[in-house]
């Protein structure tokens, strides 16, 4: 069952440019997300990966309407939430939450942990008494393995380790019993020895509460352990999408191939080889015509410079946007 469906999502940011008086310059846009479509099944972990600036965060925030998309449709249980008014959106917000890379984006450093976690309950007026509120906070802290909860409730965020703070952010996201969570690089700032602890907590919670995740990461190794399906973005577009093992072990798009080839592995006998890619990523203000990857692609053909390749299914469930795989 599809929980979330994104159709032709676009987000263009207008950029200010310096102009002389009386000259009319065309407005410039960063096409941060440019016609992105995918769906997330209920109970699934859908990964969104790619290098910094490719549009992952913007996509995630548009889905939650934390920023307004330029165009497109976002269906949640079949309804286009871009048509929702404020009050309908407010109710929906309880079901969709976000976890940021930096826990301080959702944690007020001057609040006690208890109040940080309880804040959404207060905002939505969901606890009938202080005791009930405290009970709910304690349960949320237990869920993220901050135990015993009494040891954490009356402390301040800075008294916790980075991993513990991220668990507080997760507890806060969970307290409203959401169904869908956007996790934007939730472990990127953490050391490797504690990363897995957070990821395992997230997996346990997913089982326990039947959650669905959109997991944003720049780290394909982490994606491989955590996600069911994976989409790779390049300059605002999805270039490849499929089961995580398919995409990583058997990449089809020339960009995904380069990305996977560039990743070091923790094995001294395996060295990074030649990386099949040319030059550096283009300026997002002025993306290349045709396939946006064509100036860097070692397989580019004539058509790649002119026509944009559509995202097509080349194997069951494995989608690629590349002319090399188009029929005919």
């Amino acid at each position: 069952m599809e929980l979330v469906k994104v159709e032709d999502l676009r987000k263009y940011f207008e950029v200010r440019t310096f102009t002389l008086p009386f000259t009319k310059k065309p407005k410039l846009y960063v096409k941060a997300v440019d016609s992105v479509s995918f769906h997330i099944n209920e109970g699934e972990i859908f990964g969104l990966a790619g290098e910094s600036g490719c549009g992952k965060t913007t996509t995630g925030r548009c889905i939650l309407r934390l920023i307004e998309p330029t165009s497109g449709r976002i269906l949640y249980r079949g309804e286009n939430i871009l048509d929702y008014d404020k009050s309908k959106m407010r109710i929906l917000r309880r079901r969709m939450q976000i976890i940021f890379q930096d826990p301080y984006e959702s944690i007020n450093p001057r609040m006690l942990i208890r109040d940080v976690v309880a804040e959404p309950l207060r905002v939505h007026k969901l606890a009938s008494s202080e005791e009930e509120l405290e009970d709910m906070v304690a349960r949320a802290l237990e869920d993220v393995k901050l135990v015993p909860p009494d040891d954490f409730m009356y402390r301040y965020p800075h008294e916790l380790s980075g991993g513990q703070r991220q668990r507080v952010a997760i507890a806060r996201a969970l307290i409203l019993n959401p169904e869908f969570i956007v996790a934007d690089e939730p472990v990127s700032m953490l050391d490797v020895s504690i990363r897995a602890e957070i990821l395992n907590v997230m997996l346990d919670l997913k089982e326990k509460y039947k959650l669905t995740y959109l997991f944003i990461t720049h780290d394909l190794a982490v994606a491989k352990y955590f996600c069911d399906r994976l989409a790779i973005m390049y300059l605002g577009k999805i270039v490849e999408m499929g089961d995580v093992e398919e995409v990583i072990d058997n990449p089809l798009h020339p960009y995904t191939k380069a990305l996977v080839a560039a990743i070091p592995v923790p094995d001294p006998k395996v060295k990074i080889g030649e990386i099949p890619i040319i030059g550096e990523v283009a300026n997002p203000l002025n993306p290349p015509p045709g396939c946006r990857f064509h100036p860097r692609c070692v397989y580019a053909k004539d058509i790649c410079k002119k026509e944009e390749p559509p995202l097509v299914e080349v194997k069951k469930g494995h989608f690629v946007a590349c002319h090399l795989y188009s029929k005919g």
């Binding site: 490797v192 020895s193 504690i194 990363r195 897995a196 602890e197 990821l199 395992n200 997996l203 780290d219 394909l220 190794a221 982490v222 491989k224 352990y225 995580v244 093992e245 990583i248 996977v260 990743i263 592995v265 923790p266 094995d267 395996v270």
Partner: peptide
């Protein structure tokens, strides 16, 4: 605890 892009999907270990 180190994930490898060449590894099989599993739960990673962590150090408490």
């Amino acid at each position: 605890a180190v994930p490898s892009v060449k590894g099989k999907r599993r739960r990673l270990e962590f150090i408490p």
